[in-house]
């Protein structure tokens, strides 16, 4: 927790008149005791920014953007086919965050709340642009788990590119299931598809990604940890 005013509080030799009156009314015995109490009033920089954003303070909005843009852009990239689309989702997501700021009740992580809004923005974009894509012939690989030493060498940026190259529906299902942790039922409701379709899309997405990873990193059977 960032206590913005803590240094000032520590330096006070005499409390300002207003606080001194308050101290006596409150019935605290010592000034230091009261200072400790006031220091509790100092909350995180983020909470202050949130309250200012609620009032439409553009400085606070910029600060909030600077705090979270990189993380949220990372989320948006997973749902987009390229950087331009990710930027559009990010923009839409942040507008919604600013508009819905009043709905955040300081319960749970703010980042998680923002992330959910970004995912919803991506979902809405997907729903608008959802088109039928031809189902490509996919060879379903045996389920083999890669060894840890192999996976540690894999670069996140490469994986991001692989996800972006997935057909939109597979990408959406894979992101929601594998990374966001939604269930098939929840995804089915969000995307207006059946659970069966969701499972099938996930399976195909996994197969495509597995193939891409193995091709790109030359993973051989020798490095397979186990075969299920």
């Amino acid at each position: 927790m960032v206590r913005i005013f803590q240094p000032f509080i520590e330096e006070w030799s005499v409390l300002p008149g207003n606080l001194e009156r308050r101290r006596t009314r409150v019935g605290l015995h010592t000034r230091s005791e009261f200072r400790t109490l006031i220091s509790y009033s100092v909350v995180t920089q983020l909470e202050e920014i949130i309250y200012k954003c609620r009032k439409g303070n553009s400085g606070a909005q910029t600060a909030l953007y600077n705090l979270f843009a990189s993380k949220m852009y990372g989320v948006c990239l997973r749902y987009a086919r390229d950087k331009d689309e990710a930027q559009d989702i990010l923009q839409e997501g942040f507008i919604r965050v600013f508009l819905k700021m009043d709905q955040y009740e300081f319960k749970g992580s703010f980042e998680g709340w923002m992330r959910k809004i970004m995912v919803n923005a991506a979902l809405e974009r997907f729903r608008k642009n959802d088109k039928l894509y031809p189902v490509e012939e996919i060879r379903v690989y045996e389920s083999a788990e890669w060894a840890d030493e192999t996976t540690s060498a894999i670069d996140a940026a490469d994986l991001m590119k692989m996800i972006q190259e997935l057909p939109p529906r597979y990408k959406m299902v894979f992101n929601l299931y594998a990374i966001e942790g939604y269930s098939h039922q929840e995804i089915g409701e969000l995307m207006n598809i059946s659970e069966g379709t969701c499972k099938s899309n996930l399976s195909r997405a996994r197969a495509i990604l597995q193939k891409k990873v193995e091709e790109q990193y030359g993973i051989e059977d020798l490095k397979l940890k186990k075969v299920l």
């Binding site: 843009a69 989320v75 994986l159 991001m160």
Partner: peptide, 28 residues
């Protein structure tokens, strides 16, 4: 919430869950 922990899911989750990238300056 999903309970399945497929190795492909696991790899992507571990690598991309906290993935950060600075958006272009024009985004703001």
């Amino acid at each position: 919430m999903s309970t399945d922990n497929h190795f492909v899911d696991k790899l992507f989750r571990e690598k991309l869950e906290g993935f950060e990238q600075t958006p272009p300056a024009t985004a703001m």
